[in-house]
């Protein structure tokens, strides 16, 4: 929590200014500015179609905004060539989607080891580290199973392990519990938040579910492509006393 209190004084890890992004004729983002501090867990909420996912894609350097800037650790992501962006996504960022981020033909442990292999880690070492991460997320004993052979909750915890195995600075999670029941959601979220706090990883969490957003330190709400409210714990209590 100390990260939030001094976020005004330190340079944010990730900062977006005036983001605009159009998909065909629809404007998904219409001037969004946002900051994410190191180690901060930020929830972005809003109804479906409010531009949450597009915002995540811009912030993670997956798509380029039409206007505005995204700065990560002093680098302008919107101006970086694709090759460097791809490398940054591999080393400094982790992504968790609702589904699809696991390769169906790869076993759980190989899926988690893949980012390490891409970074040039030898196979055995990569598999050993992947195994440790799977154990941390409570999916030990299922290393050799493929994603299709697991429950949704287990597959999602494998995805978390894959996102976190490289020790990223930021994890981008787009509706990570969207396809899960409430108990599995709780386990996935607890694992994510616990690990992020332990390792000081910042998390940008996209959700439309208030109970999931409540895992974050702070919440930003989007509506029709603009930020309509920002609230953290202190702002909330201020409004109550008024």
């Amino acid at each position: 929590m100390s990260d939030i209190s001094n976020k005004e004084t330190t340079v944010p890890l990730l900062a977006a200014r005036g983001l605009v992004k159009e998909h065909g004729r629809t404007r998904a983002l219409r001037g969004v500015s946002l900051e994410l501090g190191a180690g901060e867990i930020l929830a972005v909420t809003g109804a479906s179609g409010s531009g949450k996912s597009t915002l995540l894609h811009c912030l993670a350097g997956i798509v380029r905004p039409d206007e505005g800037s995204v700065a990560y650790a002093g680098k302008r992501l919107d101006q970086l060539p694709e090759k460097q962006l791809s490398e940054l996504r591999r080393t400094d960022f982790g992504v968790v989607f609702q589904f699809g981020q696991l390769i169906p033909e790869l076993t759980a442990v190989d899926n988690v080891a893949l980012p390490l292999l891409l970074a040039g880690t030898p196979r055995l070492q990569a598999r050993a580290r992947a195994g440790e991460w799977l154990e941390r997320f409570g999916v030990r004993g299922q290393e050799e199973q493929r994603p299709g052979e697991m429950s949704g909750g287990q597959a999602q915890r494998v995805s978390l392990a894959r996102a976190l195995v490289t020790g990223p600075k930021v994890v981008f999670a787009d509706e990570p519990t969207g396809a899960l029941d409430s108990l599995a959601s709780e386990q996935v979220m607890a694992a994510l938040v616990h690990t992020a706090r332990e390792s000081g990883t910042a998390v940008l969490l996209i959700t439309h579910d208030a109970q999931i957003a409540a895992y974050a330190d702070r919440e930003v709400t989007l509506k029709d492509g603009v930020v309509v409210s920002e609230a953290d714990a202190s702002a909330g209590s201020l409004e109550v006393s008024r």
Partner: peptide, 11 residues
Amino acid sequence: AAHMARMRELT
């Protein structure tokens, strides 16, 4: 906002 703050506490 107050509800969310309370939810964050409980979480």
